[in-house]
Amino acid sequence: MPPVLEVRNVEFSYPDGTRALQSLSLGFARGRRTALLGRNGAGKSTLFALLNGIEKPGRGEVHFAGAPVGYDRASLRQLRRSVGVVFQDPDAQLFSASIREDISFGPVNLGLSRAEVRSRVEAALAAVGLSELAERPTHALSYGEKKRACIAGVLAMDPKVLILDEPTAGLDPPMAAELLTLLDALHDRGITVILATHDVDFAFAWADDICVLQEGALAFHGAASDYQAVGRSFPSLGLELPWVYEVFAELHRKGAVTGDQPPRSRAELLARLR
């Protein structure tokens, strides 16, 4: 199956000469959860900007659903309807003091009828669990609630692909856990979810696929469950392995755990102790 969203040999440099991406080729498979790891400045945000058509690659192509993306108004509208981006700072995304108005922004831009916009706004509010708080002004919401309002604003456009830039940054553990439950629910609805994170443990616990960007190039791309490949690549990339993998490997050597496939989470590891 062809990837739903793909970059092929893209190069991108900022006007000041910084080379953000160099001959990057990377495809995101439909319906998969992908975590994108990489240090600050590795090119994650630039890649997201390309995937949504905000930036245009200097060389190479962006493909959506198998066809190259065009940069005229109609094509961009089509792309942005299908690929939603949730930015890191909710205060830089929410433009209105009324979250209902803010969430209605995307659907209104799609040219939907009033009734359709209204039902999409209510459905998006319900999906992120904000229906009860919708009457409150944006500035009276907590950071985590604002984050969910941002996600609702993108969900209301009914995207095929949802991209999130460091969604767990700034969230306390319970809020982060809630967010993950939400992302899994969206994934179950068939949405392809791509997120950038610095948290290796979280990436492996949540994602189907792991990508690592380093200095604008793809350094690793594989299944999170492919223990062998991850174990081979990560140390040479200077990346830490997820702690469950490391602890499991040690216990496995000592014969203290069942099975050969490493666990994904703390709970799974505990369950497999002999």
Binding site: R80, R100, E101, D102, F105, V108, N109, M157
Partner: peptide
């Protein structure tokens, strides 16, 4: 940038 991502073209509209 984030408004452009949600289809902002020339005017800010909402319900």
């Amino acid at each position: 940038r984030s408004l452009v991502c949600r289809g902002y073209e020339d005017d800010l509209r909402w319900l």
